[in-house]
Write a protein that binds this DNA or RNA. Structure first.
Lengths: 206, 206
DNA sequence: CGCTAATCTAGAACAAGTTTCAGACTTGAT
DNA sequence: ATCAAGTCTGAAACTTGTTCTAGATTAGCG
């Protein structure tokens, strides 16, 4: 298994070694600050200082705070996908496996609630200028869910169900992060939405 | 039928007439600016000027831009709930009626996409300090959906389904507003998630 | 090596959300 | 009518995201 991640961006100009190192330092600083105090604690000047880079350079690498945090999320997601791949969920049905996978991810986020806050808020606050990056996150999430379902060729109906699951996932996270829903409630909602999977299984076609 | 809306906030100190007028002017200015250019176009200094109120006063009425926009959303939601009540959806099943209601709301939002942008972005960007107000919006939305279902005493399962529908509603709106999903896709996702209602109907209990 | 274009740095400057403050105005109670 | 308390105003100040500029450094190339 080669080191190259499965789906990197078009990679317009290949980065030199030092540039790659800068990029890593920036993402690391971003995640570190986010872990401390969430979205507000990621201040561009501080990120620049922590990663030993001038402010202008930071903006050359990531054209806005939201871009930076979405990239941070891409980074974390790749991690998580790798982790999940090693220990696939054990449930008997696709719905169970997806729910189990999402709850596992949820528990990981609970360990770093501030980081989760920063990433999710950035993701939902992103405007059109960040669409490509947000889309990439969405594709990665879809891949994780489809992995859990064990599907190669999902039907359009199933894809819609997966989109709805992702919608619920993001929005439920937000309600939890802003203290309006308990962990138990998020769990219930995830389990509820996962029932859609059974409903859209090919043999259950209406 | 009295003028008092069904569920106002605790209403700590009752406002004088002039204060009520100020509050209305502010909300009106906010909605107007939002209709022009969305979230970014609602600039606190401009809102203050448009509503003939000092900046400090604006902040006394609404402690942050997000508070202001969430309050604007409450206002619009009350409007919409009233409109919907007059022409209840005609679908045969609860799922159809909910989907119809949400699509009607969606079409209303499409007429003012910038306003929708401002309100939805504020809603999902809100942090804990805005929780009470966001919760109020959520309750209002829940009321609209339950109205469409025609339910008096929903089961916990059904409430979870309604929450999932709201999650999908908000998140699907965001993907549409940020240009990552088409109107058709939003429609499909809404219809998909509404199928959950049938799944949680009391007689279909697992 | 020496040149050129691209990149990086430090720092100022700008934009918009938020806070603060002194003084003028309202309100409600006596 | 008058006083005290609370509210509103106008303006400045502060914070943090973002942009800009001039000069130093680096990378790639002949």
């Amino acid at each position: 298994m080669p080191a190259e991640p499965s789906s990197a961006l078009p990679a317009s100009p290949p980065l030199t070694e030092r540039q790659e190192a800068r990029r890593r330092r920036i993402l690391h600083a971003s995640a570190q600050l986010a872990s401390r105090g969430g979205f507000d604690a990621v201040q561009m000047r501080e990120v620049a200082e922590s990663s030993q880079v001038a402010l202008g350079t930071l903006y050359r690498y990531f054209p806005s705070k939201v871009h930076l945090l979405v990239a941070t999320m891409q980074d974390q997601l790749e991690h998580m996908h790798g982790t999940l791949r090693k220990k696939p969920p054990q449930g008997a049905t696709a719905a169970e496996r997806v729910a189990e996978t999402l709850m596992r991810a949820f528990r990981a986020l609970q360990r770093e609630p501030h980081l989760a806050d920063a990433m999710v808020r950035a993701l939902t606050f992103a405007d059109r200028s960040v669409s490509p990056e947000v889309d990439q996150v969405s594709r990665q999430t879809t891949a994780i869910v489809l992995d859990a379902m064990g599907l190669e060729n999902p039907t359009p109906e199933q894809l819609s169900a997966v989109r709805v699951i992702e919608h619920t996932w993001h929005s439920a996270l937000i309600t939890w992060l802003s203290g309006r829903a308990s962990i138990a409630q998020v769990k219930i909602d995830i389990e509820t939405v996962c029932r859609l999977i059974d409903l859209t299984a090919p043999e259950a076609d209406s």
